[in-house]
Amino acid sequence: MSRSAEIEARLREAFAPSELDVRNDSDRHLGHAGHDGSGESHFHVRMRAEGLSGLSRVARHRAVHKALGPELTAEIHALSLDLDA
């Protein structure tokens, strides 16, 4: 399973979002630090989920990182998050 698919699956399971878009931006970072050549190192996530309601921006980010788990987040160099309830 690709990292994009794994990110999407874990976020759907954890939050049942009303909107979820996982975009692989790795090709935009060719030659930059952290680009490991796998084509799966830089991601942008746009998610809308009721489970994020009432949480601060930092708490939302922490919730996403927790849902993804330490092994997956360790494989990702950059993760841009656009989160809202």
Rank of each mutant, 00 (worst) to 15 (best):
A74F: 07
M47L: 15
S53E: 15
E50W: 06
A9H: 11
S26D: 04
S80Q: 11
E19T: 14
T73Y: 04
L83W: 02
L81Q: 09
G39T: 05
H65M: 13
D25E: 15
E75W: 04
S18E: 12
S18N: 10
E8L: 04
T73G: 00
D84L: 14
E19N: 12
G31K: 11
A85Y: 13
L20F: 00
P17E: 01
H42P: 07
D82W: 08
R57F: 07
P70T: 15
L11A: 00
L20H: 01
R48C: 09
L30A: 11
P17H: 07
H32G: 08
L72E: 01
S53T: 15
H35E: 13
A74E: 12
L81W: 07
A33K: 12
A33V: 09
L52R: 09
L20A: 00
L68N: 08
I76R: 03
R62M: 05
A74W: 07
D82Y: 11
S41V: 06
S26M: 05
E8Y: 04
E6A: 10
R57P: 09
R28L: 14
H42G: 02
S26G: 07
L83R: 12
E13F: 07
H32Q: 14
R48Q: 14
E50M: 12
A63Q: 01
K66H: 10
E71G: 09
R62A: 06
R62E: 04
S41F: 07
R28I: 03
N24V: 00
I76P: 03
R3A: 08
L83S: 08
H32I: 06
L68A: 05
A59Q: 11
A33I: 08
D84C: 15
S53K: 15
A5K: 15
L68M: 02
E13Q: 14
A67L: 08
A74N: 09
S2T: 15
S80W: 00
R48P: 04
A74G: 07
R60I: 00
D21F: 10
A78I: 09
P70W: 03
E19A: 13
H32W: 13
G51V: 06
H44D: 10
E40Y: 10
F43A: 04
R57D: 06
S26R: 05
R62L: 03
V22H: 00
E6R: 11
F43K: 09
S53Q: 15
S80M: 07
S4K: 15
E50Y: 06
H29C: 02
E13V: 10
N24W: 03
D25C: 04
